[in-house]
Computed example of a mutant assay.
Amino acid sequence: MTKGIAGTGAGTDQPATRRFIIGEHDFSAPRLEAGLYIVATPIGNLGDITVRALETLAASAVIACEDTRATGTLTHRFGLKTPLMPYHEHNADKQRPKILAALEKGEAVALVSDAGTPLVSDPGYRLVRDVLEAGHKVVPIPGASAPLAGLVGSGLPSDTVLFAGFLPQKGGPKKTRLAELGAIPATVILFESPRRLGATLATMSEIMGPAREAVVARELTKRFETFERGTLAELAEKFAGDPPKGEIVILVGPPQDSQEASEEDAEELLRQALTEMPVSAAAKQVAKQTGLDRNALYKLALDLKSDGN
């Protein structure tokens, strides 16, 4: 095993806790300034870790992580000896003062999630806010990100993008949120669990429109990575059976131009909306979804309501 490389300052006096291994080569990590380092880690393939991330993890006084077992797999792979501290939403109030105390002593602390970039759809931002309010440095160490990996492989427009995280689980709030997202002129990126995927796609088809272009990205960067492309209706049908395995990212293309929304689509959307809300609210929601005239939709909704009664 090689002990150090040219230009790194590696040597036999280098503390073991400030070293890391790539393949058969042993590297030293430069010392870090005091601060909280937000370190992105691989979302599947461990080869996606960056050299800068390894240097940061090796040189930190402690690594704050969601699950020490998950992060332990990463640290073992690269020979990292930095102590691990569990930090997650259930123990944050207890652990946050310890992290702030370490920063006060002039130490560097690394924050990681189980996979990907911390703070993306997790509560780590509260720690960052407290660290900043205490006057300490916060340093992002970018790397793997499931939303971006899904976006660049999806084939959907990437000029305007909205990451919406996880949807509400209950039906009413979920439909309301989807109606809001469906009107935004952007590619929308969502996380979803495999067991809810089929039902969520069916609801998305109902609220956002069955012809809306979408992609389901599964197991990104892993051996069985797949991209399933089609309309929301097609994808809802495909995943209506047994739930798939693995991590899921759903991407939905921007809404079609208003000229492309048919009266038949608008009528179906109104029928669905009227089961949950009054006429005025239903017309407003469908107007956002389709770009059609709200007053015309209101009149149509009144007719549908009358026919229904």
Rank of each mutant, 00 (worst) to 15 (best):
G172K: 14
S258E: 12
P243D: 12
P255S: 06
D48T: 08
E264Y: 04
L269Y: 09
M277F: 03
L190M: 07
T12A: 14
S258N: 05
Q289K: 11
P185L: 05
S193C: 13
S258W: 10
S28F: 01
S280R: 15
I207Y: 11
L167N: 13
A183N: 02
D159I: 04
R96H: 08
K105R: 15
E107Y: 12
L162P: 04
G79T: 02
A186W: 06
A110R: 09
V249L: 03
A64V: 05
K98L: 12
A236V: 08
A199S: 09
T200R: 14
A281F: 05
I248G: 08
G124F: 12
T117L: 06
Q169S: 15
R212I: 00
R52H: 02
A70S: 15
A266L: 14
R129W: 00
G124A: 10
P123G: 12
P15M: 06
A233Y: 00
I184G: 02
L111E: 13
A92T: 07
L57S: 01
E66V: 03
A64Y: 04
L232W: 00
L80Q: 05
L300K: 15
G106C: 13
G11T: 11
A108F: 07
A202I: 01
A183E: 07
M85I: 01
T50Y: 01
G135C: 06
V62S: 13
L297G: 12
E55K: 11
V188R: 02
V39Q: 05
I248L: 03
G7M: 05
R294L: 08
L167T: 07
M204H: 00
E276I: 06
A53G: 12
E192N: 10
D67M: 06
A10K: 01
A6S: 08
V131A: 10
D13I: 05
T75P: 02
F239G: 06
I21W: 02
V62R: 14
D93N: 09
A102N: 05
S28K: 05
K245Q: 14
V131H: 10
L84W: 04
T203N: 14
V161F: 07
R52F: 01
A296N: 13
L300G: 03
G47V: 01
K288S: 13
Q289A: 15
G11F: 03
V279R: 08
I99F: 08
F227A: 08
E219F: 05
A16K: 08
V109F: 10
F78G: 09
R223I: 13
Q272Y: 00
V131K: 11
Y37L: 01
I22C: 12
A59K: 11
G246Q: 06
T200V: 15
L190S: 06
G47D: 08
A59S: 15
L74E: 06
